[in-house]
């Protein structure tokens, strides 16, 4: 029996060895100008992009198996980072390549990934992200940012500029953002917004079902247009309704239009069957 167990262990080790040996770390550094563009196309894995002050782009790739290969190349003012699938039958775990990328903060980013996670931190030019199911985390991203995902969630923290976030079934979170224009659009996901609105800013929150929750400071100032076809609107803020008298705080209704303080920003929240809730921080 003992021999059998040893044999079994040996077989397991033998099977695991080629995979371990296949894991590979690749590191490339390119000189880069301020307006460099980075294009990443990855299937699965953990990806982080961070800015630094050097006039260089550094790409560190960790390939988990030989089922995929990576191409990291520099074109004219453009860095291409692509993962290619060599064995189409390889399971998701073996398709993974993790990337750590450092670039100037002014770099433009075009990022495409199917699954896994994608983190972007401290860039101030255009960022475009598309994923199938990968979760997206943005932090200190300050240009025009567009995120589209089918099944992934999106979290944006301390972002400014313009932000478009769309998902079908993922949750959208905006924490301490200071964007002047925000469009958050999902079908079956929740939307959370925590922070203030910019004077003159415009904010759209749209879902079909689930919760739209806006957690706002007591000083928040905005025009509100909140409507839910079959759900409800719950408001805790002092709001002057547009037409029919004062609405008691906390009361429940299907639509609520009015002004909070001086109406410095424009906020539209629309849901089909979800709840729209405005809360004080």
């Amino acid at each position: 029996m003992k021999r059998f167990l040893y044999a079994l262990l040996l077989v397991a080790v033998a099977l695991a060895l080629p995979r371990a040996a296949a894991a590979e770390r690749i590191e490339r550094v390119f000189p880069a100008s301020e307006d460099v563009t980075i294009e990443l196309r990855n299937l699965h894995g953990q990806v982080t992009l961070q800015s630094w002050t050097r006039p260089q782009v550094q790409v560190i790739a960790l390939r988990r198996s030989q089922a995929v290969e990576t191409h990291i190349e520099q074109g004219e003012n453009r860095i291409h980072v692509h993962t290619h699938l060599l064995q189409s039958s390889a399971p998701a775990g073996e398709r993974a390549v993790d990337y750590e990328i450092w670039a100037p903060p002014s770099a433009r980013l075009h990022l495409y990934q199917e699954t896994g996670t994608l983190r972007v931190e401290s860039f101030f030019r255009d960022v475009t992200v598309e994923t199938v199911a990968a979760s997206v985390y943005l932090r200190n991203v300050n240009g025009h940012t567009s995120v589209k995902t089918l099944n992934g969630s999106v979290t944006a923290e301390r972002c400014t500029g313009r932000l478009d976030a769309a998902s079908i079934s993922g949750t959208l979170r905006f924490l301490d953002t200071d964007t002047e224009r925000l469009v958050a659009n999902t079908t079956s996901g929740d939307i959370y917004y925590q922070g203030d609105f910019q004077r003159g800013g415009s904010y759209d929150f749209i879902n079909h079902e689930g919760l739209i929750e806006l957690l706002l400071p007591a000083t928040a100032s905005f025009e509100l247009d909140a409507r839910s076809v079959q759900g409800e609107v719950v408001n805790e803020l002092p709001l002057r309704p547009r037409s029919h008298g004062r609405v008691p705080q906390g009361s429940v209704m299907k639509s609520l239009l009015g002004t909070v303080h001086t109406g410095a920003a424009l906020v539209r929240a629309t849901s089909f069957s979800g709840t729209i809730r405005l809360r004080k921080q």
């Binding site: 199917e114 699954t115 199938v132 079908i168 079956s188 089909f272």
Partner: peptide
Amino acid sequence: LREMTARPLDAVDRAIEQTQQR
């Protein structure tokens, strides 16, 4: 990819059906 997109596709189809009923 078909498997990954099944959930969002179902979510949209369900939402379309609800809205059409409305």
